[in-house]
């Protein structure tokens, strides 16, 4: 009994008084614990999580940058290998943020340790924020690792630091939320690779990682403008190289709207207990 009354993490007030689960301090502790667990998780399996995107990026630079690049010349006044850098970094941020939350949360559902969170007084929004922070941590860690790889092949130029971090952070938040939505609906391991394979990868490849949409015919230029990932990649390219196919405000608008929709949609899924509670 004595230990209980000393604890300030949650209160033990009697009936009639305001009864909360976690105090703000407790909520912060819970958030830190969940984030730490997520970072330790992808850190433990870095050979599966951090290394592959580094190798893949190196291969892209060798094949597209070094071998094919010189034949392409410049795009928007920038050598092709340089032009590739922002898109390749952001592609890793997108896939890794998504992969982290989808595999971690689905794994937790599958092995049932998601119940550790569901029985705890952590509110649903905090569980979401914790997992998203984990996805952001992995997305940005891999983004940084890939940037180091890029340094071996191309010069790093930064046009606007603020936009660089702003776009990278918001992108990882958005795709970590997306991965979490995917995980909530998934009932089978196959379900966690459907969206990355059939939606994310095509949209990313067609989203201007490797080319400027000015190189496309009028029809495909217009069609590309319906691809939200185009705005994100171009925003990041603007932050690094100062060139973009779209205005920077449209990048932030897409990211902000996407994050809000994804977050509130996810919160609704959690509150209803879809895929979580019997």
């Amino acid at each position: 009994m004595s230990i209980r009354s000393q604890s300030d993490a949650f209160d033990h007030q009697g009936p009639g008084e305001k009864a909360v689960g976690l105090t703000p301090r407790g909520a912060w502790n819970a958030f830190l614990m969940l984030l730490t667990r997520e970072i330790l998780r992808f850190g433990r399996i870095w050979v599966q999580t951090v290394l592959p995107p580094m190798i893949m990026t190196a291969l892209y630079f060798v094949v597209f940058g070094h071998l094919i690049g010189p034949r392409i010349g410049e795009i928007d006044g920038v050598p092709y290998i340089q032009y590739l850098v922002p898109g390749l970094i952001l592609m890793s941020v997108i896939t890794q943020s998504y992969a982290n939350s989808v595999s971690s949360f689905f794994g937790a559902k599958f092995a049932r340790h998601v119940e550790e969170l569901l029985v705890s007084p952590m509110p649903n929004w905090l569980i979401i924020v914790g997992y998203v922070a984990g996805g952001v941590a992995r997305g940005l860690t891999v983004g940084a690792a890939v940037t180091i790889v890029a340094l071996l092949f191309a010069e790093l130029s930064v046009h606007s630091v603020l936009n660089l971090f702003g776009v990278a952070l918001m992108t990882s938040i958005l795709f970590a939320l997306g991965g979490l939505i995917n995980a909530v609906y998934a009932t089978h391991f196959d379900h966690i690779s459907i969206v990355p394979t059939f939606v994310l990868t095509p949209l990313t490849y067609l989203g201007g990682v490797f080319y400027s949409i000015n190189m496309l015919s009028e029809f495909w230029q217009q069609a590309s403008l319906y691809n939200p990932i185009l705005y994100i990649i171009n925003g990041f390219r603007y932050a690094m190289l100062g060139i973009s196919d779209v205005p920077i405000w449209s990048t932030y608008a897409i990211l902000a709207v996407g994050i809000l929709i994804a977050y509130f949609y996810l919160l609704r899924l959690f509150n209803k207990g879809i895929g979580l509670r019997g």
Partner: peptide, 30 residues
């Protein structure tokens, strides 16, 4: 619970410490 529901790939003490955190305890206290 009736069935095992902890992360089997986590160290034993981490399973307990994490749960403490989810109840709002600091890592040190947990």
């Amino acid at each position: 619970p009736q069935e095992f529901n902890f992360n089997q790939f986590e160290p034993v003490e981490e399973v307990v410490i994490n749960q403490g955190g989810f109840y709002g305890m600091t890592r040190k206290a947990a």
